[in-house]
Design a protein around this nucleic acid. Structure first.
Lengths: 342, 342
DNA sequence: CTGAAAGCGCTTACAG
DNA sequence: CTGAAAGCGCTTACAG
């Protein structure tokens, strides 16, 4: 029951530990028959290299990981950073340095940051990428240099990263529709307020929503408006919808501007008849949930996205083993009043 | 920016690495002035011992962790085991052996298993304990021997373990009430079907439920029945409730026997008017959610409870640092049709 | 194609 | 009270 070590394998095969290492990691310079013999013993004893030993020897390479997080006033990004920072401490104690930069949502800025990382000699990159051609090219350059990339939250076309850690926004949209069905007995006229029509994460949520209500004949979308993720604009378009469509009894708030929408809603005396489902819980959202204006919020898991991204990369750098899945979708969290703080 | 090592500290303090180690870990045998000098440098350079080095040296001690999971036909326990097993593999690769036993829910059986673990020389224990005196005494014996204990899912009185990882059942109950409020517009006569009146996890859920509806005057509990977590008994009591109280339009299924309750419900022609919220998603539960009999399920996170329990213990055994919190509550997951598989 | 040796950072007897 | 040495399991030059 005691641990099997490479020394045990070497002794049994009648070779040195160096040869075991070469055979196991395909470094060449091992006679085929020797290699087969070693692999057979490894398999029989179910030998797994001790990770502490592996990591320790990696100290000599001074492994660094670069990490790029969008720099913008969005609490989601701050949470993502919080997840990353949890791991930064941990990895430092493994002797692996994670260098974090916040960079604006422009491919030029991101490319420059990557170039800086390259001069620092990073062994891997975690990034929330802009989906633009120059950045995709830069990432391909990393790929060609054998530097693994994990994308977080958003990803780029024309490139399969080592792993993408993100949200299944389509299912988020379906879940929003499901909740409004529960809240209205499946009988509702819905106003949708989205952020940007051309933001894929927003349009995916709406597509999922539409997919769900295809099977619920009494749920109808009355109006879709864009608020540019802005509270004031959100206030304006919400008032507009509710004034022009007095039958609207459900609101689906797809993106930012939740506070503006709720405050517009409250200017109507009969606002309690309108059920509201939104995304994410900002501090202002919390108040609207507690006072019953919003019935449910669907939450992403930015902290877990941050930690997971680094974990995937870490494992790859130590083991050189690809993750089992190319995509990792974080859980969908439904928050209502009762479990808001849980 | 390169890593600070104990060698660096030793050089700067003009002592050996052994002395640094003794000073840092309070092993005595260090002159007070030397110790202060070392600690000052450690603080200034923010030195953190490299964990890979620490773990590697721990191989010599052949650290073993014992783990006791209830042996009973409950998918929850199987999931818990799945979480544990994920970590077992990982820790094996750190050279730490986790010995898992499934034991019946009796304090005698659990005590015997612990005794066996002791002869094997475990350094820590993870357990789903029976809350009975002999077991509590046995755990105290471990405590006195300096062997840390983490309790999972259930805990024992008269003893504060290193950490308890479990569910906040009270909030679970509140959340169930919140969901039924959403489903019925806050206007409902509720049938509650619980497992055992004397099971604390069941009664806590009901208490949370009652707490929530104290503020919703139109939500009324019509009847509470016990099904002993048994599907056939569940079928019987559910039929009884629905026959005797034709006004019941909401069911709160507190524990096991979900399938029996749903099948009883479906024997009534107007069963669609009854909204149902339950706990946990068994394979049979899934079908009732998909066909719209159950509107929402509140889920525990057994897999995460398993992994978390071992993580807490692992960190303590390596670092000798107590966890920040004595309790770790896993998230409350709400599952509806749309996010059932997500 | 193979082995002996060094070294990653830490802790642990042991000698003084 | 302190230091020198050994060793945890692994990988990496280097010598042959």
């Amino acid at each position: 029951m005691a641990m099997v070590t490479s020394k045990n394998i070497a002794d049994m095969a009648g070779v040195s530990r160096g040869t075991v290492d070469r055979a196991l990691n395909n470094r060449g310079n091992v006679k085929e028959t020797t290699k087969q013999k070693i692999l057979e013993i490894v398999k029989r004893l179910d030998y797994k290299p001790n990770k502490a030993g592996q990591i320790l020897v990696n100290q000599q390479k001074n492994i660094k990981i670069g990490c790029i997080i969008i720099d913008a006033a969005n609490p989601y990004y701050d949470e993502l950073l919080r997840g990353i920072n949890q791991k930064v401490e941990e990895y430092l104690s493994w002797g692996i340095e994670v260098i974090v930069r916040r960079v604006t949502f422009e491919s030029k800025a991101q490319c420059e940051c990557i170039d800086e990382f390259l001069t620092m000699g990073i062994s891997g990159l975690v990034i929330q990428p802009v989906n633009e051609v120059p950045l995709a090219q830069k990432l391909r350059q990393l790929f060609d240099a054998g530097i693994p990339v994990v994308t977080m939250n958003t990803t780029v076309n024309d490139l399969t990263p080592l792993c993408h850690v993100g949200n299944d926004f389509f299912t988020y949209g379906k879940t929003a529709a499901n909740l409004l069905e529960m809240l209205t007995g499946g009988n509702c006229h819905i106003g949708i307020i989205t952020g940007f029509h051309n933001a894929q994460s927003h349009s995916d949520r709406i597509k999922g929503f539409q997919e769900y209500i295809r099977d619920t004949p009494k749920m109808k979308i009355t109006s879709i408006e864009e608020n540019l993720d802005d509270d004031i604009e959100s206030f304006r378009v919400t008032q507009k919808i509710l004034q022009n469509h007095r039958d609207v009894n459900a609101l689906f708030l797809v993106a930012g501007g939740v506070d503006g929408a709720c405050r517009a809603l409250k200017t109507f005396s009969d606002y309690r008849k309108v059920k509201v489902v939104c995304f994410d819980v900002l501090p202002s959202t919390k108040l609207h949930i507690l006072d019953g204006t919003i019935q449910a919020a669907i939450c992403q898991q930015p902290v877990i996205q941050g930690t997971t991204s680094l974990e995937v990369l870490f494992k790859y750098l130590i083991d050189k083993k690809e993750p089992l899945e190319r995509h990792f979708w974080t859980n969908i969290q439904i928050k209502v009043r009762a479990n808001l703080e849980a």
